[in-house]
Design a protein around this nucleic acid. Sequence first.
DNA 1: TTGTACGCGTTATCAT
DNA 2: ATGATAACGCGTACAA
Lengths: 338, 338
Amino acid sequence: MKQDPSASRPAPTLEMVAALAGVSRATVSRVVNEVPSVDEDIAAKVRQAILAVNYTPNRAARTLASRRPNSVTLIVPESTSKVFADPFFASVVQGVALYLADTDYTLNMVIASEAKPEKTRAFLLGGSVAGALVVSHHAGDTSWTHLGDYIPMVFAGRPLRESGSYYVDVDNEAAAAGATRLLIERGRHNIATIAGPQDMPPGIDRVNGWRKAMAETGLDDSMVEYGDFTLASGAKAMRRLLGSGRPVDGLFVANDQMAAGAYSVLQERGLRIPEDVAVVGFDDDSFAVSVDPQLTTVHHPIIDMGKKMAEILVNLIEGKDPDRVTQIPTSLVVRGSA
Amino acid sequence: MKQDPSASRPAPTLEMVAALAGVSRATVSRVVNEVPSVDEDIAAKVRQAILAVNYTPNRAARTLASRRPNSVTLIVPESTSKVFADPFFASVVQGVALYLADTDYTLNMVIASEAKPEKTRAFLLGGSVAGALVVSHHAGDTSWTHLGDYIPMVFAGRPLRESGSYYVDVDNEAAAAGATRLLIERGRHNIATIAGPQDMPPGIDRVNGWRKAMAETGLDDSMVEYGDFTLASGAKAMRRLLGSGRPVDGLFVANDQMAAGAYSVLQERGLRIPEDVAVVGFDDDSFAVSVDPQLTTVHHPIIDMGKKMAEILVNLIEGKDPDRVTQIPTSLVVRGSA
DNA sequence: TTGTACGCGTTATCAT
DNA sequence: ATGATAACGCGTACAA
């Protein structure tokens, strides 16, 4: 009903609980931190007192005294924040948050303004951040890699140039090869691809996977057009592919959004999917099921990526020695398009 | 290259800066906090020392000593986190983060597990959170409203039952009415609607807006079918609408995703958009431009909502007295479907 | 097992 | 305008 936080009385402290329970603050602290060596009867009394005064530990004091921060930061480069429209970011966050929910770490987020990087730096180095996660589509972003010297950092996706940093990713190349092989199994021989930007690891790896599968079978791998992962660019690439006059009966598209773009062009030309052209996408996002026929595509387990990133980061923070690169398995989900 | 944070030496403190500059810690603190009363020459020397040792204030110590936290929490109910697929959440976050980037507040996020609400409560009441934002699709969630007594809170979207809490929203009813009026201006008279769930404010308000516009013009407002905001439910509702046998030449759909579902049914029945049926959607999300013809729809300024929420929260934290309800203006973006 | 007492890095009060 | 010095709320040797 009313809302007047400014007039709220001060939060209960350890001191108050101690007084009420008739013990020292140290004992209360032990109970709170579940130190085993506490007499169970006393512990019970303390817990009761905690409930009675509605006590919650002050986090600032805690990290100050213990000298170990209990929060983890998600860094979102400003450039990435502009393409928020795709589900990638949200899902990674979800995975990260879900994992952290079972730990004592809390999650905070910064949009790293490229204009004033000092602010981000100050935040990360301000002593209250135990580690950081970087989610960027331009995952090469070397801007942050050097911070890894000061606090643990884990990246989403393979960096453009190997920098010895920790990252988790799917095996884009293998997955793309698998997708292409499905097309081949379906009896297609004139298989084209709509690839992603060649300055991004997923863009690069996914064409390479396609190339690999084509080469294995001795198929021609010259039908390649590039897009920028947007729907519109997928449509344009499809037009160029068809415009070349060469026959196409199979198509591997580097992400579902471009596949949706390709769909529209294919269908406006009267080509049937999958009868005339079988198509396989990548990502298994909302676009995959919003097209007709629904898209056969590589499932990109983004939430799992987020979880794994968080897991590795926590391990790093706690002094363990996890692998520098972690590959999450993908799977092919077969729907109507191939 | 190497990464061994565990071996990093301790962060520089105020103390060290003070020593190097030959002043007291108090003075350094004043310089850091830009207290005007500091001699400019001394301030300069201090700033130099700060740079020299690469000093960054410890946030925990700061909030502990000043007794005012500098972080703001975004609460995402677990149920919401499951529908991460829609862009709503990500965009709100983006808006919030963008606004906060220009303030001294940092953003953290919790996925509030319905299973153990104490954890969330403890976090919010742990003294390091200045205020909270709640983003939920079930914005009625009374679970959090009572927390507003302890710390400032701002909600995204009108709560199901008015509870005196602060919230920002678009005027769903007015926007829906405007959308419907466009259909009327286009000369349509048999206008149906696919509404959202009637236990969610947007679902309720948007039908009401449609009803209002229909009533104004003396049009019949009985052609209503309900969906749950998903694409599939939109398709089903469309089938029911068409199945009734009553003529339909105009359609207002409560969100773009359901509109996409309606599209597929309309088109499979050979009905042309907009010639046979003009359709207007709501949200202006990625679905609006992924269909053909592109959807005429109400632009839902989600990022602006996020910014406004953050702005109001900061005002609240700083003792100002903002309006309890803030309506963000919407606009109608006319594309090919009406 | 429990309590005492010091320290964590800042801000804030009070002298100077 | 600047400097001591006492909080801030908690963790943690160390002592008991």
